[in-house]
Design a protein around this nucleic acid. Structure first.
Length: 197
DNA sequence: GGTAGGATGGGCT
DNA sequence: GCCCATCCTACCC
């Protein structure tokens, strides 16, 4: 495929795509293309973080300086710092004022792979480049500077890519609360997920 | 193949 | 002071 066409093929997902229940957005993002600068990857694994009784969600403790983006309008990036070293990318869902976001946990590298390899020299395989929430932000060059960014325009966007995918569902990874809630979504059979089912 | 433990710092009680 | 939506290395099958 012509490399230059990757970054512009497929329409940018509009705000209406994100202004829906968080679980629908988490499922709908699978097979879409995340584009940042001169890198792009297909989303193959997501997790939904809900409002209400979902105590695993950052928004469960209420509106603070950190979590205000999650309570804001849909289609924006929530990027948080974890374990003193890593940034993780979420996309805000639901209507303005209602909390809900989708963590991007793994991508299949599509474009700008040589740039990703430079940013992650320790990766031992193509899968290793982006098979985790901290890995994919490093490979794509996404940092907390993008916290609050509008992802329906600008240099960080999500585009249409695959028309449809088969989805498998599991509990979320690495959390203490609500461990058995089925809110992790992966493309069935995809080899680029963070963990096999 | 699998796993235990360390690195490292912001957020919140 | 404790928790944490992680990653990497070392070491052991």
């Amino acid at each position: 495929m012509d490399p230059l066409s990757v970054a512009t093929r497929g329409r940018i997902l509009p705000r209406s795509f994100y202004a829906r229940p968080t679980i629908e957005v988490a499922r709908g993002l699978l097979g879409k293309l995340l584009v940042h600068g001169k890198t792009a990857g297909m989303i193959v694994e997501t997790e939904a973080y809900l409002g209400g009784e979902d105590l695993a969600a950052h928004s469960a403790r209420g509106l603070t300086a950190r979590t205000k983006v999650i309570f804001g309008p849909p289609g924006h990036a929530y990027v948080y710092f974890i374990y003193g070293m890593y940034d993780c990318l979420n996309i805000v869902a639901e209507q303005d004022g209602k909390p809900g976001c989708v963590l991007l946990r793994a991508l299949e590298p599509v474009w700008g792979i040589h740039i990703m390899k430079e940013r992650r020299p320790r990766a031992h395989s193509l899968r290793d480049l982006t098979s985790g929430p901290g890995k994919l932000t490093l490979a794509m060059g996404i940092t907390r500077k993008s916290n609050g960014a509008d992802i329906t325009r600008g240099n960080l966007v999500v585009r249409e890519w695959l028309p449809a995918v088969e989805i498998a569902v599991t509990p979320r990874i690495g959390i203490r609360h609500c461990q058995d809630w089925p809110l992790r979504f992966v493309i069935s059979g995809n080899q680029f997920v963070s963990r096999r089912i």
